[in-house]
Amino acid sequence: MKKRKNNTISGQFSARLIEMQASPAYRVLSLAAHRLISRIEIELANHGGNDNGRLPVTFDDFQEYGIDRHSIAPAINEAEALGFIEVTERGRQGQANRRRPNYFRLTYRPLPTDRKGDGTHEWRRIAAGLEGEDALDEARRIAKLSRQKTDSLVGEITRDSGDSPLKQATNRGKTPLPESGKNPTTIYISGEDTEQPRREARPPHGAVASGAAAPSNAPTQRDDILHATIAARLGGAIGWQILQNLEPDHLRNLTALQDRGELGEPVLVELRLAHLKRKAA
């Protein structure tokens, strides 16, 4: 009589690498982010294991699965910032004939066109080079920053263009102003006053090369102080990297917001996440 194997799974299942489950990024995931990832895995199974990168999941789907509606957008941000998912196409709210869901990709599953049969595993890059509590602290910081992004940066409640407010403002070349009575920290850095002198962020005891710029174009002492404050809020050395990569008009507006005490966390979170995505690319 043939002995029956005791490792048989009687139905569809979703495999996750032990390495991934032991990673700092996975260990700091919130309950909402865990549920969100699981619901996307279910959607992948509903597609027969195909269509990774084109998996439509609506806010209603997530809510039905057990995620509080107000927690869905932060959970998407968190799971994406920690490298487990990618929002490949932003959704849009509106009337029934114009509404569309987000489309997702699981980074630890292959794309249909991937002959290697493996994912991209961006979660491996979170806290890379760190160990123990240092790695967990870095992962927690990324998770916390990502959850603080404004809802308008994600999914079905984005503008019709599907872009973030920062990108929309950049495309228009204008600074979006808050409505009367709204918190000014929702202003995103961009500007239309391009005739002002070019100013670049520079760390203490050093300067960013600016070619043959005239001395009047160099940052003032107050600018240096404001840049240092912004860099510290963004994360020290990483903060300086972010500032030095900004376009001059963006840096001017960012500095002006800090000078007025109007530079809010949503702007800083957007900048830091954009920087992390560039590094991971």
Rank of each mutant, 00 (worst) to 15 (best):
Q148N: 15
D60F: 02
S146C: 07
G49K: 01
K182H: 14
A45K: 09
S71A: 15
I9G: 00
H47K: 11
A214F: 06
R16F: 10
I225A: 11
P204R: 03
A135P: 14
R222L: 09
A274H: 08
A237L: 00
L243M: 10
N217M: 06
R199K: 14
R39F: 12
P184R: 04
N6W: 01
K174W: 04
P197T: 01
G235W: 14
P266F: 14
P178Y: 11
E80T: 08
D249T: 04
D61N: 00
E138P: 14
I67L: 02
T186R: 13
S23C: 03
R27Y: 02
V87S: 11
H47P: 00
S30R: 05
E131W: 14
H205N: 15
K279P: 00
S210H: 08
G264S: 01
D68M: 07
L166H: 11
N183S: 11
G119E: 08
P74N: 02
R252N: 12
H205R: 13
R260L: 06
A280P: 06
Q221L: 05
D118L: 07
R252E: 05
A209H: 11
R202H: 03
A128L: 13
R90D: 05
A231G: 01
R54H: 10
R99S: 07
G94H: 01
A256T: 02
H121N: 15
L273M: 12
I85T: 10
A228Q: 07
G155F: 01
R233H: 10
N52W: 05
P165A: 04
P215S: 15
V28Q: 01
A169L: 09
H47A: 08
I18F: 06
G94R: 09
A232C: 02
E78V: 00
G11M: 02
R105G: 00
A128R: 07
E195M: 15
R54Y: 12
R27N: 14
G117L: 07
S10E: 15
I76K: 03
R141A: 14
D61E: 09
H34A: 06
F13T: 03
G206K: 11
L257P: 01
G173H: 05
L177M: 14
A33P: 05
S180P: 00
R92C: 04
S23G: 01
M1T: 04
V269T: 02
W123N: 00
E270L: 12
